[in-house]
């Protein structure tokens, strides 16, 4: 197991390097002169030069990348063009909000998805199964920002039950979390259902039933445990959709997280800040995938031993 973790950790290194290269190249994909674009069309020549100088855009590319990497290793993500503050300091107060939003949404997705998926599988072809599957299909065919707008319309404006924006109280968390978690719940429900159905048809489940094990016990102890394994992989993919989905959810609900900061900095053409946020998101996701892989392996191991 330890060997696996070490090998998996080593495998992430080239990926992380590739990610930094891609993020670094972003600035150079800008059509035209990035310094001019960041300064604004009307900015005087001297200001454009100052930005170019500050970002070191005059140096050859490999020198720029070398500097970018050496700064990065020291925890320096560069400087915001607009506020002149360090990118790290811009991101720091926001990252917690975004992570909480993503984790709460994941929790909602997993709980609702698993429960709905198990019910659907156990009551296959029943009315409730059809209802859950149709609801799931609608849920992941819906743009989450639109769901958010509709939730605000009904729960905040018409019913005045929940605040339409902001972040801090638990009431403020409900709508963004539902907005972000719904599609994931739908996907996990579908995955759980088909995975459960696969498992239920297998011999050892029939054996357990034949032995006279209680149905409830068969479902939860034997079937669900094994059915969970493919679901874990989906959870990893879902986490990616959730992390990037925060950009939309935070915009809809005016939550001051990293996602909204991303959009604000894109609008302000503050590319060093954009680069920093994209990099942080990617690193978080690489880490999440590492955890998912390890837990997947762990779950599989247990079954092999069984």
């Amino acid at each position: 197991m330890l060997q696996f973790i070490v090998r998996r950790l080593l495998q992430t290194i080239p990926v992380v390097i590739g990610v930094t290269m891609l993020v670094f190249s972003l600035m150079h994909l800008i059509p035209g002169d990035p310094a001019r674009i960041m300064a604004g069309e009307a900015a005087p020549h001297a200001q454009v030069e100052a930005i170019r100088e500050r970002l070191g855009l005059n140096d050859p590319l490999h020198v720029q990348y070398g500097r970018y990497m050496s700064n990065l290793l020291q925890g320096d993500l560069g400087q915001s063009v607009r506020s002149s503050r360090a990118v790290v300091d811009e991101i720091k107060p926001r990252i917690g909000i975004t992570m909480r939003l993503a984790v709460y949404s994941m929790f909602l997705s997993v709980v609702f998805g698993l429960v709905a998926g198990v019910i659907s599988a156990v009551r296959r072809y029943s009315l409730i199964d059809s209802f859950i599957m149709v609801a799931a299909l609608f849920s992941f065919s819906m743009p989450n920002f639109w769901l958010g707008l509709m939730l605000i319309k009904y729960f905040s404006i018409d019913l005045a039950l929940l605040p339409p924006s902001g972040w801090g109280t638990w009431q403020q968390a409900i709508l963004p979390v539902v907005t972000l978690g719904t599609a994931g719940a739908a996907i996990i429900a579908r995955m759980t259902r088909s995975s459960m159905l696969d498992v239920i048809n297998q011999d050892y489940i029939r054996t357990a039933r034949a032995k006279g094990v209680k149905e409830r016990y068969v479902i939860y102890k034997h079937a669900l445990k094994n059915a969970l394994i493919p679901v874990v992989t989906v959870i990893g993919i879902e986490m990616g959709m959730l992390l990037s989905g925060t950009v939309l959810a935070e915009t809809v609900f005016a939550v001051n997280g990293m996602g909204r900061l991303a959009i604000d900095s894109i609008r302000a053409r503050d590319f060093p800040l954009v680069q920093g946020i994209v990099l942080i998101f990617a690193l978080i996701f690489v880490f999440v995938n590492l955890l998912v892989d390890i837990s997947y392996r762990y779950l599989n191991k247990r079954i092999e031993l069984n």
């Binding site: 990926v15 894109i266 994209v278 998101f281 990617a282």
Partner: peptide, 24 residues
Amino acid sequence: MRFIDILLAFPGILLAIALVSVLG
């Protein structure tokens, strides 16, 4: 596949957002 892994390291729609943000 390493190249694909790098693309997949960007969560969900983030790479699309980043690309559109620089391309316009």
